[in-house]
Nucleic acid binder design. Structure first.
Lengths: 252, 252
DNA sequence: GAGGCGATTATGTATAGACAATAAGAAAGG
DNA sequence: CCTTTCTTATTGTCTATACATAATCGCCTC
């Protein structure tokens, strides 16, 4: 079939063959996959090996397994995508442009109602509020409004954020366990327009993110991008198969 | 810890215990996980059982395994999120609102340069171009511009899309293997504003998606949402652990 | 001391067998 | 005909063992 030489583990071989039948549409959703016993005879290997292949497929959501009934090809449900939202500094440097940032505002304070709502903490919790502007090639790239929970990240209070912006600083320091993103579009108000060097009323892409570590709120951030200068891109294939093994996915 | 009764498989138990140590930060990135042999003695089970737990963790990206060296806690890298973009019909019905759609335009044609660019096919390929407006509770919810590759989905040509909108119809019929999304913000032009019952110049959230099956282009779609009425939400925790097992992630 | 070479350790893959849990279908009884 | 019970097919988990593979460590030679 493909160019893959046969030095693959047996279970991967089996997995890929079944996968190919499913992905090509030869086995449509609802089609019954041969039982483990049948596959054992077909491939001449032990049941554990077949089981490993089938379990992986089930894990990836390609098949559903029911005792006594057998395994069946699952029908894809939702259009899912994985958005990788990189650290801003890395993102800009990755495009080959010069990167710079400036801190527009900074205040350590007790969380007001709005802060508490954003960060998901009790009011009066100590927080550090920051407003940062990032530049790509000396052009405003994104405005970052951030709240850091000083109860969980006390070191932030004394940090000047001179060398690295708060996002990078946090990412180097805290291993987060949960994150929640919301993406929406808004019109630029006067302040935002001025900060981003764009027309007032122009469309902005807004990404809000909250991050937790083991249930404890770490930070909330709102990133406001000029809508005409930035877009988020994501790619997905169901079941997270070997990346780059396909070739048709290229595009403009 | 939690309320889970102990009727869990042995390997899941082991997996969760290790997971908890990693997620809590007790085992920081770079920390060495006990070897399979050590875990076998610790838990009093066979190596295969321990192996299953460790393999799952490695698979989820929580640990890295190197022969002879052992297993080590991995360090999380980028801010990733999984956006589930549901079928529009299902999405609206899921909110409890009445759903309706209307087809504003429909044309089967040979792909022009723009069509070819969007869909990623050769010019002059036969395509079906559709413009659909979706309503939630009789209010315009989103405008859908779609191209369907008739070379791969010939059945679409004769389909009236009376009962189900094209997105739902396709999803029921074609198992896609790859999808690519781009999200951006634009200002509504006169036509878009009229279609979405919003102010001209208002911010719109635009999601563009291309879908392939085994390298063959299936469809391209551009969804234009009124920015103030819609937002995309995604949640993520590294390693895709049991969903809903945590409680801190609630929010507005 | 530099370089190579074997021993050791840890993971990767595979086997054969066992019992449990589940659910579908068949048989028996009212 | 309906309900209950039995049988059986299929997946889920686990054990004990074996050999392969990779990489580190330390010894041995030069």
């Amino acid at each position: 079939m493909t160019t893959t030489d046969d030095i693959l583990p047996r279970y991967v071989e089996i997995q890929r063959e079944l996968e190919a039948r499913i992905m090509s549409g030869a086995w449509p959703p609802g089609h019954r996959v041969p039982s483990e016993h049948e596959l054992v005879e077909l491939y001449g290997c032990s049941r554990m090996t077949v089981n490993k292949a089938l379990s992986a497929l089930a894990n990836a959501g390609l098949i559903l397994r029911r005792r006594r009934s057998g395994s069946f090809v699952a029908s894809p449900k939702s259009q899912e995508t994985v958005l990788e939202i990189h650290d801003i500094k890395a993102e800009i440097l990755g495009t080959g442009k010069a990167y710079r940032f400036e801190i527009l505002a900074r205040e350590a304070r007790r969380a007001g109602p709005e802060d508490a709502e954003h960060l998901g903490v009790a009011p009066d919790t100590q927080v550090l509020a920051l407003t940062v502007r990032h530049f790509a090639a000396e052009r405003p790239f994104v405005v970052e409004e951030r709240l850091i929970n000083l109860a969980t990240v006390p070191a932030a209070k004394a940090e000047p954020f001179a060398a690295a912006p708060p996002g990078t600083w946090l990412l180097d320091r805290i291993a987060w366990t949960d994150a929640e993103h919301a993406i929406r579009a808004v019109s630029a108000n006067a302040q935002t327009a001025a900060r981003l060097d764009m027309a007032r009323g122009g469309a902005c892409l807004v990404v809000e993110r909250r991050t937790w570590q083991a249930g404890e709120a770490i930070t909330w951030v709102r990133l406001t991008y000029p809508g005409d200068r930035h877009r988020l891109v994501g790619r997905f294939n169901p079941g997270g198969l070997r990346p780059g093994a396909r070739e048709g996915t290229k595009g403009a």
